[in-house]
Measured scan of single mutants.
Amino acid sequence: AEIMKKTDFDKVASEYTKIGTISTTGEMSPLDAREDLIKKADEKGADVVVLTSGQTENKIHGTADIYKKK
């Protein structure tokens, strides 16, 4: 799966169907969080990951919607 910015995804959204939401939390780098989200998306058969939230304090927390091409 590839990560797309919401603004970029909005241009092609009609080509995809939302298949779920994924999240990651833990003591990790932003890059590790990104890789974890991609891994989870791949496991669910998603083609595209669109980040919906991200937070960093002591731990990273990120959520994303996942989509499959129609």
Results as ranks from 00 to 15, higher is better:
residue 63 T to F: 09
residue 15 E to N: 11
residue 40 K to S: 05
residue 39 K to V: 05
residue 16 Y to H: 03
residue 14 S to D: 12
residue 5 K to Q: 13
residue 1 A to E: 01
residue 8 D to T: 04
residue 19 I to M: 06
residue 67 Y to P: 03
residue 9 F to I: 01
residue 6 K to A: 10
residue 64 A to C: 05
residue 28 M to C: 10
residue 42 D to Q: 14
residue 43 E to S: 08
residue 65 D to R: 01
residue 22 I to Y: 01
residue 9 F to D: 00
residue 6 K to V: 06
residue 65 D to L: 03
residue 17 T to Q: 08
residue 18 K to M: 08
residue 59 K to N: 14
residue 55 Q to N: 12
residue 56 T to N: 10
residue 54 G to W: 15
residue 19 I to P: 04
residue 41 A to C: 02
residue 6 K to F: 07
residue 23 S to P: 04
residue 17 T to M: 11
residue 70 K to W: 04
residue 6 K to G: 06
residue 25 T to H: 11
residue 43 E to G: 06
residue 46 A to C: 03
residue 55 Q to G: 12
residue 49 V to S: 01
residue 2 E to Y: 11
residue 25 T to M: 10
residue 10 D to N: 07
residue 28 M to L: 13
residue 53 S to R: 06
residue 48 V to Q: 01
residue 3 I to A: 03
residue 51 L to F: 08
residue 56 T to F: 13
residue 3 I to W: 11
residue 29 S to V: 05
residue 57 E to A: 13
residue 61 H to A: 11
residue 35 E to R: 13
residue 22 I to H: 00
residue 12 V to G: 01
residue 13 A to N: 05
residue 49 V to T: 00
residue 64 A to T: 01
residue 55 Q to M: 12
residue 1 A to R: 02
residue 14 S to F: 10
residue 48 V to G: 00
residue 40 K to R: 09
residue 37 L to Y: 04
residue 20 G to L: 00
residue 40 K to Q: 14
residue 56 T to G: 14
residue 24 T to H: 04
residue 53 S to E: 10
residue 49 V to C: 04
residue 37 L to D: 00
residue 8 D to H: 05
residue 49 V to A: 04
residue 20 G to C: 07
residue 23 S to V: 10
residue 54 G to D: 14
residue 37 L to T: 01
residue 64 A to K: 02
residue 19 I to T: 02
residue 60 I to L: 12
residue 20 G to K: 00
residue 6 K to Y: 05
residue 30 P to K: 08
residue 66 I to Y: 02
residue 64 A to Q: 04
residue 8 D to E: 10
residue 55 Q to W: 15
residue 45 G to Q: 05
residue 23 S to F: 10
residue 51 L to A: 01
residue 3 I to D: 00
residue 2 E to C: 15
residue 28 M to G: 09
residue 34 R to C: 14
residue 32 D to Q: 14
residue 32 D to F: 07
residue 44 K to C: 15
residue 35 E to M: 14
residue 57 E to D: 12
residue 39 K to N: 07
residue 61 H to M: 14
residue 15 E to W: 13
residue 38 I to G: 02
residue 12 V to A: 02
residue 29 S to G: 09
residue 25 T to G: 11
residue 63 T to H: 11
residue 26 G to A: 10
residue 45 G to K: 06
residue 65 D to H: 04
residue 17 T to K: 09
residue 42 D to S: 15
residue 29 S to R: 05
residue 1 A to M: 06
residue 31 L to A: 15
residue 31 L to V: 11
residue 11 K to R: 11
residue 38 I to C: 07
residue 27 E to G: 13
residue 49 V to D: 01
residue 53 S to H: 12
residue 8 D to K: 04
residue 22 I to R: 00
residue 2 E to N: 10
residue 69 K to E: 04
residue 11 K to M: 09
residue 51 L to K: 03
residue 49 V to L: 14
residue 48 V to M: 04
residue 21 T to E: 08
residue 36 D to L: 07
residue 1 A to Q: 01
residue 33 A to Y: 08
residue 8 D to I: 04
residue 37 L to W: 04
residue 5 K to R: 12
residue 2 E to V: 15
residue 36 D to V: 08
residue 24 T to W: 13
residue 50 V to R: 00
residue 27 E to M: 13
residue 56 T to I: 12
residue 26 G to N: 10
residue 56 T to Q: 10
residue 57 E to Q: 10
residue 51 L to E: 02
residue 66 I to C: 04
residue 24 T to P: 04
residue 61 H to E: 12
residue 50 V to I: 08
residue 58 N to G: 14
residue 1 A to I: 13
residue 38 I to N: 03
residue 27 E to H: 12
residue 9 F to W: 05
residue 47 D to F: 03
residue 18 K to V: 03
residue 30 P to Q: 09
residue 30 P to M: 13
residue 16 Y to N: 01
residue 1 A to T: 06
residue 14 S to A: 11
residue 55 Q to H: 10
residue 24 T to Q: 06
residue 9 F to T: 02
residue 15 E to F: 10
residue 44 K to T: 04
residue 56 T to V: 11
residue 59 K to Y: 15
residue 1 A to N: 01
residue 30 P to I: 12
residue 21 T to Y: 05
residue 41 A to N: 00
residue 13 A to Q: 08
residue 24 T to V: 12
residue 61 H to T: 13
residue 10 D to I: 10
residue 57 E to C: 12
residue 44 K to E: 07
residue 35 E to G: 05
residue 35 E to P: 02
residue 46 A to Y: 01
residue 13 A to K: 13
residue 30 P to N: 13
residue 62 G to E: 12
residue 64 A to Y: 14
residue 44 K to Y: 13
residue 61 H to L: 14
residue 32 D to E: 14
residue 42 D to K: 12
residue 11 K to D: 04
residue 51 L to G: 02
residue 43 E to D: 07
residue 31 L to E: 15
residue 16 Y to L: 03
residue 70 K to I: 12
residue 59 K to Q: 11
residue 17 T to S: 10
residue 25 T to R: 09
residue 9 F to V: 00
residue 1 A to C: 12
residue 18 K to S: 05
residue 57 E to H: 09
residue 68 K to W: 04
residue 19 I to G: 01
residue 39 K to Y: 05
residue 5 K to D: 15
residue 14 S to T: 11
residue 63 T to S: 08
residue 24 T to Y: 12
residue 37 L to M: 06
residue 46 A to D: 02
residue 15 E to L: 12
residue 53 S to Y: 10
residue 62 G to A: 15
residue 43 E to N: 06
residue 34 R to P: 03
residue 14 S to Q: 08
residue 33 A to L: 10
residue 45 G to C: 11
residue 14 S to M: 09
residue 67 Y to D: 03
residue 18 K to G: 03
residue 23 S to R: 11
residue 62 G to L: 15
residue 35 E to T: 10
residue 33 A to G: 06
residue 21 T to N: 06
residue 41 A to I: 00
residue 26 G to V: 13
residue 40 K to Y: 05
residue 26 G to T: 14
residue 46 A to Q: 00
residue 36 D to A: 14
residue 70 K to Q: 07
residue 69 K to F: 05
residue 3 I to V: 09
residue 51 L to H: 03
residue 52 T to W: 10
residue 17 T to N: 08
residue 63 T to R: 08
residue 28 M to I: 06
residue 50 V to D: 00
residue 15 E to H: 11
residue 36 D to M: 09
residue 61 H to Q: 08
residue 9 F to M: 02
residue 18 K to Y: 15
residue 11 K to P: 06
residue 65 D to W: 02
residue 60 I to V: 12
residue 31 L to D: 15
residue 45 G to M: 06
residue 39 K to H: 08
residue 5 K to V: 12
residue 31 L to G: 10
residue 42 D to C: 14
residue 24 T to M: 09
residue 41 A to L: 01
residue 37 L to I: 05
residue 1 A to P: 09
residue 35 E to S: 09
residue 49 V to G: 02
residue 32 D to R: 07
residue 67 Y to L: 03
